[in-house]
Design a protein around this nucleic acid. Structure first.
Lengths: 315, 315
DNA sequence: CTGTTAGCGCGTTCAA
DNA sequence: TTGAACGCGCTAACAG
């Protein structure tokens, strides 16, 4: 790169001292209006921008954050990431991306890198198997997504509300035999909470319970859907849209089209392939925005870690 | 963060001068074996790692690269990104992600940010509408993916080879009426080159040409597939798996199952939903690895910009 | 082979 | 309200 100019140059060009330029740069008080304007003029006249590394070295922040997704090709996480990127850019933060692949060990490694790198903050997409102890040092500069943990900021989906919304909707349409395809309880949010909500609804309305919790892959939905179908079944609720995709494939192959499907998750792919499926949007887009905003506020010391719950909406 | 130690501390602790520590750090010659070992011992005894910002300021590189994808939720680009991340990590580079959304203007903005940020290099997923002029300053530190441009390093897919492979495969299975669903020529690679390959094959083997070039969305595949079906048609080649997904949905709805589908693209989603479709893998995974490797070599001055073509393989 | 010295671009005193 | 001087952690040029 060509030798860019420094605050020294700006100072010389506008006939002031370095520190005055520094003050203008950081919007500090104690500079006369006239001087400030003059310096600012020179600055954008030469489209000056201060060296990030130099500021970083002076203890200021580097303005870099990390986003650790479980998988780059997760449809839902993509939606969240898409909304947080603009927030970060706008505030001058560079987001670096990492993939955990649901491995606690990878998360540890990545966090290690980030710590050495002296990064400002992290958005971590949670999953079962994260050791909360390893997150310790990040308590004040980490936002957990889709999972919560004591003492950490988090943005969660309303698992219970999402399932209840679906169930109520089906119930109101006259369905009385609603099966459930979900995720094992080892996954607290997507697994246990959603399943519990299903069970609670069934109990409250005296509906028969027919459920299976195979996992969260399409393949598992495909293979296990048969096990929750009884002759009376008229509707099926899936804990995730991925499971629903797997289930539909099976139903399509078996030419079963009398079943009303419903699922949590509102990805474009799903909407296109199966518009007939009733879905609730857990608020992926919102969650990204909120997580980014919360993280920035924490970094700036304008907010304590807090837990945010995104409301689910029928879509 | 807590106050970490500096080379000065390491120097003191191991009883040498700062510059000796610096030399050891950078694997420079001119340090006796004994001294080197002693310093290294002290270093990892205190798990020392040098301040990146300080090195960056000293003209060294910051070790940050950017990956500009068209869309975060592109299935194919995801595959490529997944393989390049590990390469970057391994070499100590932090990859920051950006999304262009197929907008030349966004690319410009992003590159502007990156230039101010004094970044080391960029992997740019190409698309129609990128103004090559704006890429000028990056000539030596940019790798273009899925597109080529004179003077720039690029990693491209073998568009022609991919289509020919599919066509030949279908031809060998006895198909003589093969339709084509593709992308307009405004897109040079996915659009023109693949279509041209189809036309060439048809001409060479005296096959009838039935083609339409609606675009690259699923919806367009869904809506346009009917227009390329004749009573004689026994096979359909799609330029991308996204188009193929759209087409299959239509065919499924119409209960047409006598048609052999084939497409370029080998994403897991496709493999699961439609294993019956013949696909060629354009080498997404390879392309990511190669792009990352090439970029790093360029940054280190160990390679000139060069054009790499990834071979397509039947999968 | 090794230590000393001098900056890099910026923020932060401290006088003026 | 301003500027001069100093130091951050590191590399580079120069002595020894």
């Amino acid at each position: 790169m060509q030798n860019r100019l420094t605050i020294k140059d700006i100072a010389r060009l506008s006939g002031v001292g370095k520190s005055t330029v520094s003050r203008v740069l950081n919007n500090e008080s104690g500079v006369s209006q006239r001087t400030r304007e003059r310096v600012e003029a020179v600055m954008d006249q030469n489209s000056f921008s201060p060296s990030r590394s130099a500021r970083a070295m002076r203890g200021q922040s580097d303005k870099v954050v990390a986003i650790i997704v479980t998988r780059l090709d997760s449809l839902s996480e993509n939606l969240a990431v898409q909304t947080m990127l603009p927030v970060f850019y706008e505030q001058g933060y560079d987001p670096i991306m990492m993939e955990s692949k649901f491995s606690g060990k990878m998360v540890e490694e990545h966090l290690g890198m980030l710590q050495r790198r002296n990064i400002d903050g992290v958005v971590l997409f949670g999953f079962t198997g994260i050791d909360e102890a390893t997150l310790g040092p990040w308590q004040s500069s980490l936002v957990l997504l889709a999972r919560d943990a004591a003492g950490f900021a988090s943005v969660c989906y309303d698992d219970e509300g999402a399932i209840i919304t679906l169930m109520q909707n089906l119930y109101d349409s006259g369905h009385r035999h609603i099966s459930y395809l979900g995720v094992p309880h080892s996954d607290v949010t997507t697994g246990q909470r959603r399943h519990d909500a299903y069970l609670a609804f069934c109990k409250q309305h005296a509906l028969p319970v027919v459920a299976s919790l195979p996992g969260l892959s399409m393949k598992q939905g495909y293979e296990q859907v048969a096990s929750v179908l009884t002759p009376q079944t008229t509707a099926l609720v899936c804990a995730t849209d991925t499971l629903a995709l797997g289930a539909s494939k099976y139903l399509q192959e078996q030419r079963i089209d009398s079943l009303q499907l419903a699922s949590v998750g509102n990805t474009p792919l799903m909407k296109f392939l199966h518009p007939e499926i009733i879905t609730v949007d857990p608020g992926y887009a919102d969650s990204g925005r909120q997580a980014a905003t919360q993280l920035i506020e924490q970094i700036n010391g304008r907010s304590e870690p807090r837990q945010i719950i995104i409301p689910a909406t029928l879509s």
